[in-house]
Amino acid sequence: MKSVLIVDDAAFMRMAIKKILEKNGYEIAGEAENGEEGVRKYNELRPDIVTLDITMPEMDGLTALKAIKTIDKNAKVIIVSAMGQEAFVRDAIMRGAQSFIVKPFTEEHVLKVLNSI
C-alpha cells in the first residue's frame, strides 16, 4: 500500500483528496497545511507520494517542492494546481515534480495520476 502525504492549505481540499485515496487503497501518511509543515512532515514520514498545492501560506508549493527534493531527490511529488497556474506547473515539472492534478478534479482524474507513479 502506497503512503501519501497531502499538503494543502484548504482543509476542504485535503479532505477531498483523502477521501478519494482512502477509498482506493492508499494509506494517508499525513496532512500538512502549508509548505513548511509539508517539508517537515516529508522528512519525518517519508511517504511514497506527496500531493502538493501551489498557493499556500508560509511556504508555497514550489519552494516546498524544492526543499523536498533537497531532502530526497527521488521524492515523488504530484502538484495540485488550478486553471491559470500553467506556468507554476511547468516550473514544478522542471524542478522534478512527477505529475500534476488540476482542480476541480474528479476521483478518476486523481487516481489516474496517482496510479501512474
Binding site: D9, A10, F12, M13, T55, A82, K103, P104
Partner: peptide, 17 residues
C-alpha cells in the same frame, strides 16, 4: 494582498469542486 489572493484562490477551488 497575498493573503486575500490565497483566500480567493482556495474558495475558487473548493466551490468549483
Amino acid at each position: 494582498i497575498n493573503e486575500i489572493f490565497r483566500i480567493m484562490h482556495t474558495i475558487k477551488g473548493s466551490s468549483a469542486m
